[in-house]
Every structure is written in structure tokens, then in C-alpha cells.
Amino acid sequence: MAITAAMVKELRESTGAGMMDAKKALTESNGDMEAAVDWLRTKGLAKAAKKSGRTAAEGLVAVVVEGGKGVAVEVNSETDFVAKNAEFQGMVAKIAEAALNASDVDALKAADLGGKTVESTLTDAIAKIGENMGLRRMASIEGGNVVSYVHNAAAPGMGKIGVLVAMDGGDEAFGKQVAMHIAATSPAALNEAELDPAVVEKEKSVQIDIARESGKPEAVIEKMIVGRMQKFMAEVTLVNQQFVINPDVTVGDAAKALGATITGFIRLEVGEGIEKKEEDFAAEVAKTAAGA
């Protein structure tokens, strides 16, 4: 029986399976839709699809450094319990290694991981473990010296927050201190030049509105804004922040004293920016008991 695009579309919509998987299921089932669904279920693909709509905001960030290059990847799961699973951690470690040769997330998803793509490996893991998972982000950085740090480590090289710091000069110990600082303070940018202009303008607008509430003359307000924006830059740009290791100096000054120049950084935190659905377990139990 000829397998049409409409049939593939229908099966994809009913199961959430990928296009190639849906087409193969229909081919194997000679166009029988119900049999194709069963085929997907036996392969774990339909099960994986059902999980795909659930929020995956837990998981791990893994970091790998090789030579003058470092990569960080975020692989999500639904629960922290899975993030502590040795099999999940092993998969994340392999994905991070593969990221060293990938240009972006899409390339990483298509990368080979022991004869399967990273995306297929994740699909298989969803079916086996029974939770939605996803490769959400990856980022890479290069420099004369790249140092990594993981906060709340669950296993070597992976945890809740992963940081990479690129420097010219300096040493491993200083790089680690800067990475720990970044994990704690989450700077918005390396310096003022790299800060998003839209962020700067928004903050300036807010500060102008606040200053005008004081009723002071415009000339005074202008001077107030200069000072407040300098303070803002000191709070959100890495090189201008007070160094958590020694608050008497800025990060930039600490680097300069060691003959180092920080050229960039990456900070990934698990679940950052994902809207988590809050569950009221007691209310859910009461609702079920009431027969609602």
C-alpha cells in the first residue's frame, strides 16, 4: 500500500512521533493506522511522544574543556531524581564530549553517539526512563586558557550551574576563582561594551523616572543618572564587579594584578528561564478523593 504524506501527518499528530518514525511505522504496518500506532508503542516512540509535552526543568549542565576550547551543555529532565541517575549522567557526559565538535544545538542533536544521533539517544532514554528529556542549550568558548567550574556537582564535570572562563594569561587557580565568582553573581556581560544596549537604555529610563519623582531640577537629575548608571555597570558587568574572593578590588583589577585578561565567559544554570508548573499535591489528592 502506498504511504501518503497525509497518512504520515495523521500518525504524527496522534502519537507525536517524528516524521521518519511515523513513515517507517506505516510502511511496516502496510498502511494500517492502528497497527502503526502499536508498532510505535513497541519501539517506545509513542511513549516518548506522550512525555514530550511535560515540563522538563530539572537536569544537569555539563562542561568539558579540551585545549583552548570549552563547551557547556544543558540536558533537562522532569525531576531531580532522574538527574541523579548514573545512566542519565553517563548520557549527559557523552553529549558534552560530542559538543566539542558541534557548532550549535542543531548540529549536536544530529551528532553521532555510538551509532545513534544524540536526538535518537534522548528519545530512547525517554522511553526507557519514562520522563521527558531534552537537549536545551549548548555554548562554546575559546581562549588562551579556558577554565571550568561546576556548582552543586552531581558528578565530575556536571551539576546545577556550569561556568567556563576564557583568559589570556593568569593560571588555573585564578580562573577557578573567577568562575566561582560568576556562578555566584551571574553577571550580565563581561564589560560595558558587551552589555546589551537595550538593557542599558531600559535601566537608564527607569532611573530617570525615579530621579524625576524627587522633584529635583533636570541639571541635578542628569548628574544623578551618571552616578546611578556607573553603579549599575559595577553590579552587572564582570570586570567591574567587586571580586567575591577579595571585595576590596574588582574582578578586572584582580586579573590585571596577575597579568591576566579575561576575554569571555559562559554561565549556564539548569532550568534558567523555564516556567515551571507549580503543583498543589494536597489539592490534587482532595480533588481526586471528592471524585472531581
Rank of each mutant, 00 (worst) to 15 (best):
A62D: 01
S77H: 02
M229S: 15
G114F: 04
N246Y: 00
A254V: 01
A234M: 14
K176W: 11
E28D: 12
E10H: 04
A36D: 06
V75Y: 02
V63Q: 10
M19N: 07
T117L: 08
T237C: 15
A127M: 07
E66L: 10
T15N: 12
M33Q: 01
G90E: 06
V178M: 07
G130V: 13
N145M: 12
T250N: 10
V236T: 07
E222D: 05
A184I: 03
G273A: 10
I129T: 07
D104R: 14
P247E: 06
G271Q: 01
E34I: 10
A48P: 09
K176G: 01
V63P: 00
E87I: 04
E78L: 10
R41I: 11
F81S: 14
Q207G: 01
K43Q: 14
L195A: 03
A72S: 14
F265E: 04
G53S: 06
E66D: 15
G170I: 01
E74D: 02
A96C: 12
G31I: 05
R228F: 11
S77T: 13
T237F: 05
S214I: 03
S29I: 03
V8S: 09
I3W: 13
N191A: 01
L238S: 02
K276C: 11
T79M: 12
H151Q: 15
V199M: 12
N191S: 04
A62P: 00
V239Y: 05
A257M: 05
V206R: 12
S205I: 02
A289N: 00
A184C: 05
V285T: 05
N191V: 00
G291N: 07
A25I: 01
R228I: 03
N240E: 10
K176T: 05
D21T: 01
R228C: 02
M158D: 00
G44L: 05
T185R: 13
V37D: 15
M233P: 04
A189R: 01
I141V: 07
V285W: 14
E131W: 06
G130L: 12
L190K: 02
K9R: 13
K24F: 00
A154D: 07
M233K: 04
V199D: 13
A292D: 05
L238G: 10
A283S: 09
A93E: 12
E235Y: 14
A2R: 06
P197E: 06
L135G: 08
S14K: 12
M91F: 15
T121H: 15
G175C: 06
K24A: 04
D21P: 09
G130F: 09
V163W: 05
L113I: 03
P156C: 11
A155H: 11
D104W: 10
A211E: 11
K94G: 03
V92G: 13
P187E: 03
V92K: 14
G70R: 08
G90K: 09
A107G: 08
K116W: 11
P247M: 05
A290I: 05
G162F: 04
E194A: 02
I262Y: 07
S140N: 02
